[in-house]
Simulated assay, not measured.
Amino acid sequence: MRKSEYARAVADEFGDVYGRVLTRDVVLPALGNVSADDAIARGDDPRDVWLALCEAQDVPPARRHGAGLREPRR
């Protein structure tokens, strides 16, 4: 997962404004008790950050995988 796909997944799942609040303020135990923004800034894999955020926010597993990908071109 690229950073752009991560950002798209966050916006799609949580909305633009609330997604930014979550990534800034929610502490993710799976990543050592840092926020998603801090984890991305320190170089963590965006996929790991996405999955940790999903776990912390109880996103159903069916909506975690494949998130952030654009619709295929026709």
Results as ranks from 00 to 15, higher is better:
residue 2 R to F: 02
residue 2 R to Y: 13
residue 2 R to C: 08
residue 3 K to H: 13
residue 3 K to Q: 12
residue 3 K to V: 12
residue 4 S to R: 13
residue 5 E to A: 14
residue 5 E to V: 11
residue 5 E to T: 11
residue 5 E to N: 14
residue 6 Y to M: 05
residue 6 Y to W: 12
residue 7 A to M: 12
residue 7 A to K: 14
residue 8 R to T: 07
residue 9 A to C: 04
residue 9 A to N: 00
residue 10 V to T: 06
residue 10 V to E: 01
residue 10 V to N: 07
residue 12 D to L: 03
residue 12 D to H: 08
residue 12 D to Y: 07
residue 12 D to P: 00
residue 13 E to R: 09
residue 13 E to S: 12
residue 15 G to A: 07
residue 17 V to W: 11
residue 18 Y to R: 15
residue 18 Y to L: 12
residue 18 Y to D: 09
residue 18 Y to T: 14
residue 18 Y to C: 04
residue 19 G to M: 04
residue 19 G to A: 06
residue 20 R to D: 14
residue 20 R to Y: 02
residue 20 R to A: 09
residue 20 R to S: 09
residue 21 V to M: 10
residue 21 V to N: 11
residue 21 V to L: 15
residue 22 L to N: 00
residue 22 L to T: 02
residue 23 T to W: 01
residue 25 D to A: 15
residue 26 V to N: 04
residue 26 V to W: 04
residue 27 V to N: 06
residue 27 V to I: 15
residue 28 L to Y: 04
residue 28 L to E: 01
residue 29 P to L: 01
residue 30 A to T: 11
residue 30 A to N: 06
residue 30 A to Q: 13
residue 30 A to K: 15
residue 31 L to V: 05
residue 33 N to Q: 09
residue 34 V to Q: 08
residue 34 V to G: 00
residue 34 V to C: 01
residue 36 A to T: 07
residue 36 A to V: 08
residue 37 D to C: 03
residue 38 D to V: 12
residue 38 D to L: 11
residue 39 A to Y: 06
residue 39 A to D: 04
residue 40 I to H: 02
residue 40 I to Y: 09
residue 41 A to G: 10
residue 41 A to S: 14
residue 41 A to Y: 04
residue 42 R to K: 10
residue 42 R to H: 06
residue 42 R to Y: 05
residue 43 G to V: 09
residue 44 D to N: 13
residue 46 P to S: 08
residue 46 P to L: 10
residue 47 R to D: 14
residue 49 V to N: 01
residue 50 W to P: 06
residue 50 W to T: 05
residue 51 L to I: 09
residue 51 L to V: 03
residue 52 A to F: 00
residue 53 L to G: 00
residue 53 L to N: 02
residue 53 L to A: 07
residue 53 L to Q: 03
residue 55 E to I: 01
residue 58 D to L: 08
residue 59 V to Q: 05
residue 59 V to G: 03
residue 59 V to P: 03
residue 61 P to F: 12
residue 61 P to D: 15
residue 63 R to H: 10
residue 64 R to N: 08
residue 64 R to Q: 15
residue 65 H to R: 14
residue 65 H to N: 11
residue 65 H to Q: 11
residue 67 A to G: 08
residue 67 A to D: 09
residue 68 G to R: 06
residue 69 L to Y: 13
residue 69 L to D: 11
residue 70 R to D: 14
residue 70 R to Q: 10
residue 71 E to H: 09
residue 72 P to Q: 13
residue 72 P to W: 10
residue 73 R to P: 02
